[in-house]
Amino acid sequence: MDELMDILMDLDPDIDYENETRLIDGKVLDSFKIVSLVAQIADNFDIEISPKYLVPENFNSVRAMWAMIQKIQEEEE
């Protein structure tokens, strides 16, 4: 999860990722940041994020993102 936090902090260090649960619904992350985020998650974790995962529920919190990454990693194995 540290690697994910690093990506997020790089993206915008001013966001309270620990506690934020409405990163998308609350428009805390904008579209540019999401693209960068998704690309960096894909790069750093060497996974392909299928578009079916690109729903607000998977990006509203760090926990949700982490769960999604793990799920994709399991699927790809």
């Binding site: 579209s31 540019f32 693209v35 998704v38 392909e48 994020i49 079916k52 690109l54």
Partner: peptide, 16 residues
Amino acid sequence: PSALAVVTQLNTFKEV
């Protein structure tokens, strides 16, 4: 291009 790239970076065409 950034907006067009979003579409393919997120593999959208696999879904629609």
